[in-house]
Design a binder for these strands. Structure first.
Length: 283
DNA sequence: ACCCAGGGTGACG
DNA sequence: CGTCACCATGGG
């Protein structure tokens, strides 16, 4: 990997990042493609991301370079991780989607986003999140275009059920309000940050609307627990159809994942999840 | 009209 | 401990 910063454009050379996979694989919901350029908001900053002979991010201030390096999880060598996987089924699924990469996203945004994800589909999750940002997020301008930051917990805690229903959150509206209040009135985010996987998951599950699956997504996408293995309907189909294993209990799947994929099982999960959606694997 | 989507909650055995 | 109806909402 090689990094350059010129004219507020951050160039990342020799990184296997495919924006169309990274931003459309269901981990993040706020980047949208237009004429080959992905534009979105992360960490309160609006940026455009293009793939040329490098990955280009604009605009980036000098002091924010480490922020974006970490956002794209560039401390981890994905090629090395893939090289250590022995499972041929996984490697075959990975073959054409090597540019996948887990983003290190903001905890509160990830928590609310995946509360919304419950019994929902990726397209509508994104639409609902955009509605929330337009209704409650701080405006951000980029080249005359208006964007919105993800709303603060303080602001979402003041929303009403009816307002959130109008945003399309559905029955998850009270979960969002109550979780926002709990985030404000406790130190739960810092506590989760300092805990190992199991107790961190247990603590996250005390938030309204957060159960085992959503907690795993939060730990994987916002707290760098790459062993977290979210078990949604797609991944259960993969385990059953592709691996031919009829595992029903979460712990059985977790044990299988840890044995088969190792410490980075969560990254394997994301590859498998994306593969399943691309191939529209049926139950 | 029914089924599905990155499920969680509460009630009931 | 397990099962199950219910929860909004848009698209197939």
């Amino acid at each position: 990997m090689r990094i350059e910063l010129k004219q507020k454009t951050l160039f990342l050379y020799d990184v296997d990042i495919a924006p169309e996979i990274v931003f459309d694989c269901g981990q993040a919901f706020r980047f949208h493609r237009e004429n080959g350029v992905y534009t979105g908001v992360a960490m309160g900053k609006a940026v455009r991301i293009t793939k040329t002979d490098a990955i280009e991010i604009y605009p980036v201030e000098k002091e924010d370079v480490p922020l974006w390096i970490h956002y794209f999880d560039l401390d981890l060598d994905y090629a090395q991780i893939r090289a250590e996987w022995a499972d041929k089924t996984l490697l075959k699924c990975v073959e054409n989607i090597k540019g996948m990469r887990l983003l290190n996203q903001e905890p509160f945004e990830t928590i609310i986003s995946f509360i919304i994800s419950a019994n929902n589909n990726v397209k509508r999750i994104g639409k609902t999140i955009e509605n929330l940002c337009e209704a409650y997020g701080e405006p951000i301008f980029l080249e005359g275009e208006k964007f919105f930051a993800f709303p603060s917990a303080e602001r979402l805690a003041l929303a009403t059920r009816e307002e959130l229903l109008a945003c399309g959150t559905g029955y998850r509206a009270p979960y969002i309000i109550e979780t926002a209040k709990k985030v404000i009135n406790s130190d739960i985010l810092n506590e989760v940050k300092g805990l190992p996987y199991e107790p961190a998951k247990k603590l996250l599950c005390t938030l309204p609307g957060v159960g085992p699956k959503v907690a795993d997504c939060i730990l994987l996408f916002a707290f760098e627990h790459k062993n977290a293995f979210p078990k949604d309907v797609w991944i259960r189909r993969v385990i059953k159809t592709v691996y031919g294993k009829d595992l029903k209990k979460d712990k059985e799947i977790d044990d299988f994942a840890a044995e088969t994929f190792g410490a980075y099982a969560g990254i394997a999960q994301q590859y498998l999840f994306h593969y399943a959606r691309l191939k529209k694997i049926a139950g």
